[in-house]
Design a protein around this nucleic acid. Structure first.
Lengths: 136, 136
DNA sequence: ATGCCTGCAAAATATTTGCATGTAA
DNA sequence: TTACATGCAAATATTTTGCAGGCAT
C-alpha cells in the first residue's frame, strides 16, 4: 500500500475546501505522507520545527481543528488534559497507556459493541468512542 | 432502595481514610445522599454555594480528586475540556450529549464489548470507557 | 498539641481569539 | 486586488499548587 505523496497534498486540501497555504501543506505533509498516527498539537508543533517549518503553536491548533472539521482527522479524547488527533479515519478504537501518554489503535472489527440500548428521544448516534485503559 | 443518609457520611469518609472535615462532609452529602449523578467541579461548587456552604473551588477540585483516588467516585472523560465525576461505581458506560454537556448512564450489562484483542506486552486492562456520542 | 485540611491567590496547562500583517488566487 | 490565513500575544478555561492559618483527633 502506497502512502500519500507530497504532491497530492494540494488536491487533498482543495477537496476539503482549504487553501493550500505553506503551513497547511507542511503540517499535512507530516500527518498524511506516511503511516497512520496519533499526535497532539504540541508534538506536531515540535516536529514541524524539527523539519525547519516555523509555524506558531496557535496555527498548529487552528489547523488541527480545521482538519478535524473537514474530516481529515479525528479527535480522540483519552486523557481529559490533552487532545489527540488521529489520522486513521476508519471505524476503530484505542488502547491508552496513560503512563506513556500513548494511544494505540485497535483495528476496526476487532472490538465490537453489542446491545446498544434505546437512545433518548430525538437523538441519534454521532460516534462511539471506546478507550481501553492500560496499566503495567 | 434507600439512599445514604447524612449521618452515614462520617463512616463513609473514615473507611476511605479521609478525615470527616466540614467541607468533605458537605460535598459528600451533596454527592452521595441521593440518586447517582454526574458532576463537574464547577457545578458542585455552585451547588454547595446554593446550599450555604462556602467552599473554595480549589477545595472542591481537591476533594473530587481525593474521592476519586479512594474509589468513592469515578472520573469520566467525555469532553476533553471538562472532567466529569460519576457517583455510580458499577461497571457501566455513557451517552454523551455534547450540545447539552450532559452524561447519561447506560446501565451495566446493556452494552457489551466483544473481541478484545491481545494487549501489548506486559500490560493489563485498567478499565474500559465507552462513550456513545449523541447528536440531535 | 499535632498533623492533616482549607482558603486564597497565584501558577500551570491547554487551547482559543483579536488584530495587524502576509499571501494565495 | 481581495479575501482568507498566519503570527503573536493576550485572553480564556480548567485544574493544580504553595503557604499561612484552621480544625479534627
Amino acid at each position: 500500500m502506497e502512502y500519500l505523496s507530497k504532491d497530492e497534498i494540494p488536491a487533498l486540501l482543495r477537496e476539503a475546501e482549504l487553501r493550500p497555504t505553506r503551513q497547511r501543506m507542511a503540517l499535512a505533509g507530516l500527518l498524511f505522507c506516511g503511516p497512520h498516527r496519533h499526535v497532539t498539537a504540541e508534538e506536531l508543533h515540535r516536529e514541524a520545527a524539527d523539519h525547519g517549518h516555523s509555524i506558531s503553536l496557535a496555527t498548529v491548533y487552528n489547523t488541527l481543528n480545521q482538519f478535524s472539521e473537514v474530516g481529515l482527522l479525528r479527535e480522540v479524547v483519552a486523557d481529559g488534559s490533552r487532545t489527540f488527533y488521529d489520522t486513521n479515519l476508519s471505524d476503530h478504537h484505542h488502547f491508552y497507556a496513560a503512563k506513556r501518554g500513548k494511544l494505540i489503535d485497535i483495528p476496526a472489527g476487532d472490538l465490537r459493541i453489542e446491545g446498544m440500548p434505546a437512545l433518548p428521544e430525538g437523538m441519534k448516534v454521532a460516534g462511539i468512542d471506546v478507550i481501553v485503559r492500560l496499566e503495567e
